[in-house]
Amino acid sequence: MSLPKRIIRVMPHEDNLRYFNVTIDGPSGSPYEGGKFKLELFLPDDYPMLAPKVRFLTKIYHPNIDRLGRICLDVLKANWSPALQVRTILLSIQALLSSPNPDDPLANEVAEEWKSNEQNAIKTAREWTERFAQ
């Protein structure tokens, strides 16, 4: 049995141990498959009482991620719990890539497109993945 493919990489920053460079592989079966998405993750002073701050650095076409890379995810905001960890948060973000939720949008235009013409939106997401996330 071979080891599973590496899917999420986390490296602490040399100068600041609260700052992490993260790479998430686009989940298979999603329009982000084959892409490598860079994120930055920062643990605030009050971590784990406050959620880590996470932002996409790679451009991505997704209804819950805006063009500044900010992520609309409940566990990063109101539903944060100190028992969650960097590991669980990054898994949630990867799951968000697998199942976009246009009914709770952050990027309104993307969400509109997703609702009115899903085929086209998925096509655009795939194109963006090829263009920006390689």
Binding site: L3, P4, K5, R6, I7, I8, R9, V10, M11, P12, F20, Q85, V86, R87, L90, L91, Q94
Partner: peptide, 13 residues
Amino acid sequence: ELDQLELETRGQE
């Protein structure tokens, strides 16, 4: 995925 991630992040965390 969990396994893998655990391996990777645990040490660093």
